[in-house]
Every structure is written in structure tokens, then in C-alpha cells.
Simulated assay, not measured.
Amino acid sequence: MKIIVDGLSITMLENTLAQSINTNLGKFIEEEMQLAYHGFFSRDGDQNFADLDKYCGDLVGTIGGVRAIVLEVKLKEGNQLPAYDEDQHRALSALEENNVPVHYCYNGYNLRVGRPSNTDVNSYLACEPSNLGGKTPKSAEHETLGKVAESLVNSGKGGFDEAVYSLAVLNICSDLTFELSQMTAKCLLLLYSQDLRKICLLDHMMAERLVRTMQAKKFTAQNKGSDEFFRKLEEFSSTLRQALHTLEHPDPKPSQEDDSLYSAPGF
């Protein structure tokens, strides 16, 4: 169903909001936090929270080159989020439980009053999915986007030091150079995997083989829904566990099926 707010489609309004958020977030991180920022917008055809080979948010960014931030942008009208989707929320909550730094982000100002002329990161509120509050967000409990960005670097789940470890997984060799456009849901799940430290303890060659194995495996969804997402999430976890087991307990005579541990295309 197409949602209209003040005569405009909410999709158009949220796209405009996402661009404003990206601009102001980048300015804050680079000028106030003195860190590099790169933001990547997922195109409509590339965003599907149920498909691990696509993007799980409207905006994917990196802070300081080693810390990811994923934002699902929603427009707040009055005290509600008209485009809130419960099915999407289930999937984003599961990504949060798997340590992926995904947040809802919405305008902290009243749309009908108008956008303030001095819009900055303090004009937007953000929260993890578990603390959203549904279609009527618990705004009084939510931090400004600037504070969320700072907390992602200084503390919280998968702190800065762990992020360095996780990035090392993808930068394990020169031809696996990390790129922002590669930060699909699959990539983020690998970066923030519960097995992250185990992966990083593998030697250089073993870690490279593991990353290539996960790169090669496709987790394409048959439909856009949380049930399909959970099936793909379990498939991802099973594939990762099997790949780790294969590397830790190698067969002296690998079969042809093990060839994927040696070469594969990128994410």
C-alpha cells in the first residue's frame, strides 16, 4: 500500500531524509570525531532484509574505516512512523541479536512544523530495533544520531577493538580488499559473527579460505518476509559452522566439494 504524507509519497520523503542524515552524519564524524566516514545508499532493488546477499538498511556506512553503522530510515509524522513494518522489525531485531550494528533512525523534529534550518545530527534520533517501541517510537528513550555514532566507536556491542579484528577477516589478504559496497547482510553477519574471534585465530591461509567460502555461498531469498529471512539466517550459520569445522579438522584427501575453500568470487 502506497503511503502518502502531505501529498508526497513516504518513500520519496524517506529518501530525502536519508540523504540529509548521511550528509550531517558524515560532517559530524569527520569534523567532531576526527574520523573518516563513508556512506553507501542501497538502491530499492538491492535492499531486502530477507535476502542476505542484499542490504539490510537504507544507509550503510563506515566510521574510521573499521566500524560499520547500518541505518533503517523512517519518517516520523506526529508521534508515529507511518511506514513501520512489523515483519521487517522481526528481521532487524534478529540482526541486532547477531551483533550487527543496525539502528532505526528518524526525524526528531515535527514534519508539519518544518525542517529546522540548522539541521545536524542532533535533529535525528536513533535506536536499536529492540528499543524502538513499534509504530509509536519511544522517542524520549532514544539518543541523538551523534551520540549513537560515538557509542559505536567507544563502547557497546562489538566495540572499536573488535571491529579492527572483524575488518581483518575481510582484509586478510591483498586481493580481498574491503569495500563499502560489499557490506550486504551476509558480509555484516560474518564481520560480527559470534565465531569472530575463532576466525581471527586461524592462520593467514585458513582465514582466507574461510572468507572465500562464505563469499561463494549465495543466500538468495525466495520472497521478502521474516520467515524467509530466518531460514536464510539458519542456513548462513550452518554454512559458517561447517566451514569452520572443515578448516579445523581437515580431510587429508579433500574431495571436490572442498574446492570452494580455496577459491571463490567476491561478496
Rank of each mutant, 00 (worst) to 15 (best):
N223L: 14
L196M: 10
E208N: 10
V211T: 01
V211C: 02
F229N: 11
E235V: 00
F229V: 02
R197M: 14
M205N: 03
L196D: 06
K224G: 13
F230Y: 04
K232A: 10
C200A: 10
C200W: 02
T213N: 04
M214Y: 00
T213C: 10
F230P: 10
Q215V: 00
C200N: 08
M206S: 15
K217S: 10
Q215G: 12
E208R: 11
E208P: 04
Q222V: 05
A207G: 11
N223F: 00
F219Y: 13
M206E: 12
L210N: 01
A221C: 01
M214S: 03
A207T: 06
T213G: 05
D195V: 01
I199W: 01
K218A: 10
I199F: 12
F229R: 04
K232S: 11
R209K: 09
F230I: 04
T220G: 04
M205F: 06
K198F: 08
N223E: 15
G225D: 14
D227W: 04
E235F: 00
I199K: 09
A207D: 01
T220F: 05
K217R: 08
R212V: 03
E228I: 00
G225M: 04
A216R: 07
D227V: 09
Q222R: 13
D203T: 02
R212Y: 07
D203V: 04
T220R: 05
L210F: 07
M205G: 06
L201S: 15
S226A: 05
L233R: 08
E235M: 06
S226Q: 03
T213E: 00
R209S: 12
D227E: 15
D203S: 02
L210E: 03
I199D: 10
L202W: 01
G225Q: 07
M205R: 07
A207E: 14
R231L: 14
Q194F: 06
H204W: 09
K232Q: 15
N223A: 15
K198H: 11
M206Q: 11
D195M: 12
R212W: 01
K232I: 08
K232Y: 08
L201K: 10
K224F: 00
D195C: 12
E235N: 03
Q194D: 15
E234T: 08
M214Q: 05
M214A: 03
I199G: 02
K217M: 07
A216N: 11
Q215R: 09
Q222C: 10
E228W: 00
L233W: 10
Q194N: 13
Q222E: 14
L196R: 11
R197C: 12
D227H: 07
I199Y: 15
D227Q: 12
R231P: 09
R197N: 13
E228T: 02
R209F: 01
R212G: 08
K198E: 15
D203C: 02
T220S: 12
R231Q: 15
N223M: 14
A221D: 11
E208T: 12
M206H: 09
L196S: 07
K218R: 14
K232G: 10
Q215Y: 08
K224C: 13
Q222W: 02
R212T: 05
A221V: 06
H204R: 14
E235Y: 03
Q215H: 13
K218V: 06
S226C: 04
Q222F: 01
M214R: 00
K224Q: 12
F230A: 06
N223C: 15
K224I: 03
D203N: 09
R209Q: 09
A221F: 01
L196I: 04
M214K: 01
